[in-house]
Design a protein around this nucleic acid. Structure first.
Length: 170
DNA sequence: GCCAACGTTGGC
DNA sequence: GCCAACGTTGGC
């Protein structure tokens, strides 16, 4: 008895099954601030340099064009949410992994199967800076990933409720 | 597959 | 510059 054929390709998961529709993305303002992104052509920058598998997998598996982004400034005098942005492209290979002179060079990444991805992020607007202390004071943001102890991920999902709570602060 | 050593992140 | 926390590496 022949078995029913199984689809060769799994259907894309419905939006409700994605990890999130909103994201927080960290950028060092010395490298690319919200002002830098707003000044870029089409207010769009390639999000280069992600070298963490969890963050890469969010880009690869969950992030979609149009998703909302909290643009976060890290490793600077005033860390916090500095602007709003959106995901503006699908993923593609991050070219810096193949550039020996780049700080993001990864000699172990096989060019035929690039290990690291990026996508384009379009800045929408600069906001007033929402520093960590202010975010921590909002009960609805208690579980925001960037506020958790030891958090280091440069891309983290933001729930619908957290997104709304941030918008309410602006 | 364990786990110690090491490098990096990032707030303070 | 300090240091806690975390991810990665590599010997065994």
């Amino acid at each position: 008895m022949p078995q029913a054929r199984t689809p060769q390709v799994a259907p894309a998961p419905p939006a409700a099954q994605r990890a999130a529709r909103y994201w927080l993305m960290k950028s060092e303002p010395d490298e690319c601030s919200i002002d830098d992104a707003l000044a870029a052509p089409h207010q769009t920058v390639p999000w280069t340099g992600v070298r963490n598998y969890q963050a890469r997998n969010f880009m690869r598996d969950d992030m979609q064009v149009g998703d909302g982004v909290l643009f976060y400034h890290s490793s600077c005098a005033e860390p916090g949410i500095a602007g709003l942005a959106r995901i503006a492209s699908a993923t593609r290979a991050d070219p810096t992994q193949f550039e020996p002179e780049s700080p993001y060079f990864d000699p172990k990444s096989p060019p035929a199967q690039p290990r690291w991805l990026l996508l384009d992020v379009q800045a929408l607007r600069k906001t007033r800076l929402l520093p960590l202390a202010e975010l921590r004071a909002v009960p609805a943001l208690a579980s925001l990933r960037v506020l958790q102890r030891g958090n280091r991920l440069s891309i983290t999902p933001v729930s619908d409720e957290e997104w709304a709570a941030v918008q309410a602060l602006l």
